[in-house]
Amino acid sequence: MDKVTGLASENGVVIFNKNSCCLCYAVNILFQVLRAGMEKVNTMLGCNALVPAVFISGRLVGLTDEIMSLHLSGSLIPMLKPY
Rank of each mutant, 00 (worst) to 15 (best):
N11S: 11
G37W: 01
C22P: 04
T43F: 03
G12W: 01
S57A: 15
D65Y: 06
G12N: 13
L60P: 00
F31L: 15
A26S: 12
L30H: 00
S9I: 10
C21K: 06
P78H: 12
Y25T: 14
D65W: 00
T43Y: 04
V13G: 00
G74H: 04
F31I: 08
E39Q: 06
K40N: 10
S9M: 09
P52W: 05
A36P: 01
A36T: 07
A26K: 07
G46R: 05
V27Y: 02
F31E: 00
F55E: 04
I77K: 10
S75K: 15
V14P: 01
G6Q: 14
H71Y: 14
S20K: 08
S57H: 15
R35V: 07
S20C: 02
G58A: 09
C24W: 08
H71L: 11
S20Q: 12
P78N: 14
D65Q: 07
G62L: 06
A26W: 09
K40C: 05
S69G: 10
N11K: 11
K40M: 05
L45N: 11
C21P: 01
A49M: 05
S73D: 11
C47H: 06
A36F: 00
V13H: 00
N48R: 11
L72P: 00
P78K: 14
R35G: 02
V33Y: 06
T64R: 13
L60T: 02
V27R: 03
G46L: 13
L60R: 09
S9H: 02
T64S: 03
M68Y: 04
A26V: 08
I67Q: 05
A49P: 00
G37C: 01
G58C: 10
V51D: 03
T5Q: 09
G12A: 12
